[in-house]
Design a binder for these strands. Sequence first.
DNA 1: ACAGTCACTATCATTTTGCAAGTGACCCGA
DNA 2: TCGGGTCACTTGCAAAATGATAGTGACTGT
Lengths: 145, 145
Amino acid sequence: MTGDENNLGSCPVDRGLMRVGDRWSILILRDLDRGLTRYEQLRTSLGIAPNILSRRLATLTEAGLIAKRRYSQRPPRDEYLLTEAGRDFLPILAAIGAWGRKHNGAGALTRQIDVETGAAIRPVVVDANTGAPLGSRPLKFEYPE
Amino acid sequence: MTGDENNLGSCPVDRGLMRVGDRWSILILRDLDRGLTRYEQLRTSLGIAPNILSRRLATLTEAGLIAKRRYSQRPPRDEYLLTEAGRDFLPILAAIGAWGRKHNGAGALTRQIDVETGAAIRPVVVDANTGAPLGSRPLKFEYPE
DNA sequence: ACAGTCACTATCATTTTGCAAGTGACCCGA
DNA sequence: TCGGGTCACTTGCAAAATGATAGTGACTGT
């Protein structure tokens, strides 16, 4: 499967994964969030081959999650920044991180700290309607027509 | 990168992705949640090649997200069920779905309904400490030693 | 002029994915 | 009991993606 064919199914999860459905893409978003925005920073941080990094950056750009910005004219140098769609994805990264910590969390792990309270955040997915964590109330699926 | 080498980094996101870091795995979890638990159901629902499905089911089983259960002795038939770790991952699917709906949501999409209230859920990742959605308060990263 | 950095591209081997066909255990009807 | 039919796969092979390594171009600083 190519990952971005245009037979859009009715599943929003699939829709999401069409755009960020691979490991490197997600790790790139994580690094951009951490402040590593330049090609060389990403390459060394991730240990990714340069051709692969280029391709991932291109697809993420095309998917509208990141954008290239020139930070130096001479010499011409670019950095990659998260777009709004990209920033919107960050909470999901945090949720994945929380899951990884819980189910594969041996050893010391990076955490995110709330700057104001100083406490490590504990990401949870809740239903904005009820405030209840997902999984705590019964749900059913509703399929279009 | 193979995806499950044992150089575990300190990033919990990476730790999570080591175990579910590909499109098919996530789509399989989605289908199991929807009640499609048998091999043939998954294969036809996903349109996946049988050898790939077998491999994904094997790696998900090895990763502890799903488990095989015999539902018929004669003929011998198995189904796949989510483990606790697998169920723990479902809220993340919902969050990915919400993101997909927002950023790639043209057309009619499947939704999840709270059985008690009848309303479509609106998944949001919040910090369990403050209740605030992630992204609404400044955060910093803390790296181990 | 020459080394060094950054941001890549090009080439090619390896790995993974995907398609199509086949297999084995069983059930069911004629 | 012989021939389909279903389910849950496996096997073989082609196509695509990934990864390692080397090279390129635009500069800068000495």
